[in-house]
Nucleic acid binder design. Structure first.
Lengths: 164, 164
DNA sequence: TATTGTTATACTCTATAACTATA
DNA sequence: TATAGTTATAGAGTATAACAATA
């Protein structure tokens, strides 16, 4: 708590220039190892990269996937509702939907009850595509399971269930 | 696996315009609830926001904190070594260090053994400042503990230990 | 030839603010 | 007046590529 050297041995020869080659895996993280945020950030980078790579053939990224899944399960949602539910800025969702609409996966339908808002739906093509995306996403999830172990993955989901 | 409706009841009146007001917390996430990546992303957003807010008075963000902590525990590291260890692009680290050097927290010293590289050190001021940052970061970590529970936070750190 | 630090570019994402058309 | 969608801008963060100095 005081000096900050702690559990990290200083692997260098002297206090001035770097004297010898230091491998990445022998550099101590000091207090970072006790921060959940650090571990979570590193894990999130890994998991997103695996998701992107696993769904590369269909060119769908995590946020796009979450939007499509939400609309697929709740057709007719407004943009505001989707943005709030997923924690996306509504300004950002506009561009996400522009791209998904160009790809004919989603359509915006003017709401009759509130003419300011759009009811969001998957196209028929979008429903078919989403089914494939879900199969690939399930494959990605198996990678996660292999990486963490089955029990750990389930524990993780339980621990973080409150943030979804 | 086929249609995608699954565990999510469709809370709307008809297939066209949105018929009634839907609250955010009653929108089902469908298969997203089974994705570790989704939960992790939402949690990471929460935890980073708390970190940023808790260290707002000293204007230090998570990445800056990780760089300072690493240099503090391993003085003399090169920029390449820091970038590799933390998974930051070396091009990005240049700007991060520019800003930390302007604030007199870090200094770049030309290495004598390899004149291409810089040995990174905290300034005296940087060491004092880092001690304060660590106290605030510990306070942030207590917020995490309050949010997750003590046992869950520790389990989370164990599960993700391999990604640090 | 390869590596370190640097500069530059592009794209994603977050955070705002302001505008329009509606309510 | 407030809200839904849109447009625009600025700042992080990520991903590349290219360059100078040095190995």
């Amino acid at each position: 708590m005081t000096t900050g050297a702690g559990q990290t041995p200083h692997r260098r020869r002297a206090g001035n220039g770097a004297a010898r080659r230091i491998d990445a895996d022998e550099i101590g993280l000091d207090t970072l190892v006790g921060h959940a945020g650090y571990a979570v950030r590193r894990f999130q980078i890994w998991i997103f990269q695996d998701f992107i790579k696993t769904l590369e053939e269909v060119d769908i990224r995590p946020t796009q996937y979450s939007v499509l899944t939400l609309i697929g399960a709740n057709p007719g949602l407004s943009q505001m509702a989707v943005a709030k539910r997923l924690g996306i800025e509504r300004a950002r969702l506009v561009h996400l939907l522009d791209s998904l609409e160009e790809r004919k996966l989603v359509k915006r339908i003017k709401s009759k009850s509130d003419r300011r808002s759009h009811a969001l739906h998957l196209t028929t093509q979008g429903e078919t595509a989403l089914a494939k995306f879900k199969r690939l996403a399930a494959e990605h999830e198996r990678h996660v399971e292999q990486k963490l172990g089955k029990a750990n993955r389930e524990r993780l989901l339980q621990i973080l269930a409150g943030f979804t």
